[in-house]
Structure formats: structure tokens, C-alpha cells
């Protein structure tokens, strides 16, 4: 059963269409809401939280209508905003406890759960420290703690790894995965980093300029073999060999994509074996040499490439 579904969801800001007739279905688990900055992720989240009315279409979250049952819905969800500003002089434990109370917890229960949530995110020892003295990584964890402290059915996390270094990012992603796996809390994670979403999400909703690019289980959208990645070795007396290989492959109708940061390129098609044969023939004809050839896995960015082409 879908925990979130939308039908024809549209948001119009004057002449700008922030969301364009989205039909989205999100299943239980960790869902990545992915897209570049300005793709409409935060707008979609604000609608799903009942904080903004759509211009057209409708949505249901946990079986509730965010427009008419917003307060009831928000009692059952947690939310961690992207903005990294928190009350400077407030101890983390007071901050989490207060928000748990606002989400309906009795005072004593809120105090206990605030402590538990801060231990859960690895800030047990630091829970009495003022938020203003904490690092960006610690603040991100506090935001996560307040989102889960009131035992929500679903949490929305807006760019939870923003401002984190690679190690902190890994730890945060692991923590988010554990929250879903160990405690049965569904997670909608907004991110502009495709690699994060590929790493921990079960489902993906990909947006590009307000339009739905893809929606479904990650395993179905990415991961299947889809062509090969090739790296050619330059040969001194064949300066045009690489260009000849690329031209030959394109001539045979293959989608050839050059990598930004290396001499490698992807040759994309449904049948990896057929692609490999074509690459072999093209390389042999041109006199180039293959440095590396591996099966290519379809990645989330291909969905965006496909949508734009």
C-alpha cells in the first residue's frame, strides 16, 4: 500500500510551474526524493506536510488528505528542515523534548524520548550542550533526533547531509537507513546527490524542473546491465582512433556518453553483449587499444539524461 500518493499535483507560482501534474506513489521504506536544486523537492514536501495548497490535483499521506487533515497528519510525521539554523542558546535535550511535546507527547514521556532519540543519533553524551556550540554534523543529528523523537510513522528529511564531510555523510546515511530498518519508520529523503539516494533508498521519486522523471523501486529503475563502460588507451600513431571509435558506434545507433572527468565513455543500450561486440569491432577497425571495458550499470543520472534528451 502506498504511504504517499499524488494525482495530477500541480503548483503554479505566477508564470512559473513548480510542480507539473505529478502522479507519484511512494511505498513503505526509504524513499529518495531526488532532483537538482529548484526541481520542486521542497515544494512537494511542503504540500505533503499540508503547509501549502496545490494549484491543482490532490495528495494523500498515510491515508490522510494534507489539505483538510493537515494537523492530524503532522501529528504522525516528523520533519527535519534543510535550513541549518537552530536556537543557539538551547540545550539539545530541551530542544528535542520541546518539539516532542508540541507533537503531542506528555511531558515526562517527551523528556525520556528526547534522551533516547539523542542517544540513537550518537549525541547521548552531548545532549546537554547548547545547540550554538555544536558542529554542523551534530546539528544535523539533532534535527534528525527531533524528527524521530515523537515516534512518527513517517519522517521527511530535507537534505539531511547538507554541509557534512564525507565521513559524516556516510554516518548520517547509515543512521537514516537504520531508523527505517530497525524502527519501522518510513523515510522520505530529499537530496540533490544521486549517489546518496542510490546508496540507501528503496524507492525513488526523481523530479526535474517540476516534472516527474521517474517513480518506483530503485532496483527497477537502476542496477540492470545496460551497455558497457570503455576506456581506450591512446596509441601514438593513431591520434584519431578514439574519435573513430565514437563515430563508428554512433553510426550504428548506440547512445555514446563521454565521462566528464576521464577519457572513458559509456555505450548505452539494452543488450550489453551486443554493445560489447560493437565496441570490439569498432576498436579493431580503428586500431585503438582497449584499456578497460566493464559492464555498465544503469544509474539514476541516466533517468535524468533520458528525460532531457
Amino acid at each position: 500500500m502506498s504511504i504517499i500518493s499524488t494525482a495530477g499535483l500541480t503548483v503554479q507560482f505566477g508564470a512559473h510551474r513548480a510542480l507539473d501534474a505529478l502522479d507519484v506513489h511512494v511505498e513503505s521504506g526509504v524513499t529518495g526524493l531526488v532532483g537538482a536544486n529548484g526541481a520542486g523537492k521542497t515544494t512537494l514536501m511542503s504540500i505533503l506536510l499540508g503547509l501549502r495548497r496545490p494549484s491543482a490535483g490532490n495528495a494523500t499521506v498515510l491515508g490522510l488528505d494534507p489539505v483538510t487533515q493537515g494537523a492530524e497528519l503532522r501529528a504522525r510525521v516528523g520533519y527535519a528542515p534543510e535550513r541549518n539554523v537552530l536556537p543557539e542558546d538551547m540545550p539539545a535535550s530541551d530542544f528535542v523534548k520541546h518539539l516532542a511535546e508540541v507533537r503531542g507527547m506528555p511531558k515526562d514521556e517527551a523528556r525520556t524520548r528526547a534522551s533516547d532519540a539523542l542517544w540513537l543519533v550518537g549525541l547521548g553524551e552531548e545532549r546537554f550542550r547548547a545547540l550554538g556550540t555544536m558542529s554542523t554534523g551534530q546539528r544535523q543529528r539533532v534535527k534528525l533526533a527531533q524528527a524521530v523523537a515523537a515516534d512518527p510513522s513517517l519522517v521527511f528529511l530535507d537534505e539531511p547531509t547538507d554541509g557534512l564531510d564525507p565521513v559524516q555523510r556516510d554516518e548520517m546515511l547509515t543512521l537514516i537507513r537504520e531508523i527505517s530498518t530497525n524502527f519501522g519508520i518510513d523515510v522520505v529523503l530529499s537530496s540533490h546527490l544521486l549517489e546518496e539516494v542510490e546508496r540507501i533508498c528503496d524507492h525513488v521519486v526523481a523530479l526535474d524542473a517540476g516534472r516527474l522523471v521517474a517513480d518506483g523501486p530503485l532496483a527497477e529503475l537502476v542496477g540492470n546491465d545496460e551497455g558497457v563502460t570503455v576506456e581506450l588507451v591512446e596509441v601514438a600513431d593513431r591520434p584519431d582512433a578514439t574519435a573513430a571509435v565514437l563515430a563508428a558506434l554512433r553510426e550504428r545507433g548506440f547512445d555514446v556518453r563521454l565521462h566528464d572527468r576521464s577519457a572513458a565513455f559509456d555505450v548505452v543500450a539494452d543488450d550489453a553483449d551486443r554493445v560489447a561486440d560493437a565496441v570490439r569491432d569498432a576498436v579493431a577497425d580503428s586500431g585503438a587499444r582497449i584499456g578497460r571495458i566493464v559492464r555498465r550499470r544503469r544509474r539514476l543520472e541516466d533517468l535524468f539524461e533520458g528525460a532531457r534528451s
Partner: peptide, 15 residues
């Protein structure tokens, strides 16, 4: 509004 509590409050049952 300055320290982000407003956004957090509106993600709770408050309107």
C-alpha cells in the same frame, strides 16, 4: 523566524 523554529512548529499539528 530567525532561528528556524517557525518552520519546525508548522511541521507539527500547529497551523
Amino acid at each position: 523566524r530567525r532561528d528556524g523554529m517557525y518552520a519546525l512548529y508548522l511541521s507539527t499539528p500547529l497551523t
